[in-house]
């Protein structure tokens, strides 16, 4: 399939890419790994008249822990994050990177590209919203840092201005005694999930503190489930609490029926996934090594 025709521009740095965006104006789009953008362009859901390729810049791919902050260059591929011992220390980040699509897509796709696309079925936004994460943006006018929750506006809609480029993703490293998990139900590896759940919590003794529960694929943007968090906060997580969290998730999910399943099916899946994710997160918060993987059905 051919995409619509476009003029190709190669930026030598992210700063130059932002300048090109300003100069070209309407119709210009950034190309990173292309794993989201090229499929959209082939379907002509996107038809930018100019592509600015940032894949040949250097220095945009890195994973660093500085103090309590994990800093990820926007051009870091999912595969680099999957294989990074530093990123592995935050379970949700590793779960997310290792479970995205397949090897080929993880080799090319970037964390910045995934967030910029803001597909409601994308993985990174849902996973990172359960942590405290920020997106650092640059433009010819300067730079700014937004909480990820303020960055993701709606389906395929972010707070990016027309001359801005994502430079870095910053994730606050959770406190000791914390644990998290990110689990999807997928029909096959290369497709978007039917439903996804990210969970992060902290244990003091057996008491749950600071729970964060976020759902993906079941609304126009990731959904933070206050009701499920309230069912867990300040108490021991037993079967009763897990059931209550699952029910709150079922109620909060707002899916559409489509080829991946009916709305009712997706609500049920999300409710089941949150219980699995919570059990994994609890084990990890207690220091156990808990392997998780997405479920395929």
């Amino acid at each position: 399939m051919y995409t619509a025709a476009f003029e190709y521009h190669r930026a030598s740095s992210l700063e130059e890419a932002a300048t090109m965006l300003s100069q070209i104006g309407e119709g210009a789009k950034i190309l990173a790994g292309g794993q989201s953008l090229i499929p959209l362009m082939k379907l002509r859901l996107a038809a930018p008249s100019h592509l600015i390729d940032i894949g040949f810049t250097s220095g945009g791919s890195y994973i660093r822990e500085e103090g309590r902050l994990l800093r990820l260059g926007a051009l870091t591929s999912h595969a680099e994050i999957e294989l990074s011992p530093v990123a592995q220390r935050i379970a949700i980040v590793h779960d997310c990177a290792a479970g995205i699509a397949d090897v080929q897509v993880r080799n090319r796709g970037t964390i910045g590209g995934s967030l910029a696309e803001a597909d409601p079925s994308g993985d990174w936004a849902t996973a990172l919203l359960a942590l405290s994460a920020e997106v650092h943006l640059i433009s010819p006018a300067g730079e700014r840092t937004l909480a990820l929750d303020d960055f993701i506006k709606d389906a395929y809609t972010t707070a990016l201005r027309s001359n801005e480029v994502i430079a870095e993703i910053r994730v606050h490293v959770p406190d000791a005694g914390s644990g998290g998990a990110y689990i999807c139900l997928k029909r096959a590896a290369p497709v978007y999930a039917t439903a996804s759940v990210a969970v992060e919590l902290k244990l003091e003794g057996n008491v749950c503190r600071q729970p964060a529960i976020v759902l993906g694929c079941v609304g126009l943007r990731p959904i933070r489930v206050d009701g499920a968090e309230a069912a867990l906060r300040g108490r021991e997580i037993d079967d009763v609490a897990l059931e209550a969290a699952g029910e709150a998730v079922r109620v909060a999910a707002d899916p559409e029926s489509d080829m991946r399943g009916s709305a009712e099916y997706k609500r049920t899946v999300a409710g089941a996934l949150v219980k699995r994710a919570l059990r994994a997160a609890l084990g990890r918060a207690r220091g156990e090594i808990v392997e998780t993987s997405h479920l395929y059905a």
Binding site: M1, G34, K42, G55, D102, Q104, N107, R108
Partner: peptide, 29 residues
């Protein structure tokens, strides 16, 4: 599939598997 699903178009680029239907040729320069 020509839609980044099936992997029939997989090649190695700098030692890593990629789907050559989901890359513009210019990206492989």
């Amino acid at each position: 599939c020509d839609s980044s699903y099936c992997g029939a178009c997989t090649v190695l680029m700098n030692g890593r598997a990629v789907k050559s239907c989901t890359m513009f040729g210019v990206q492989a320069d």
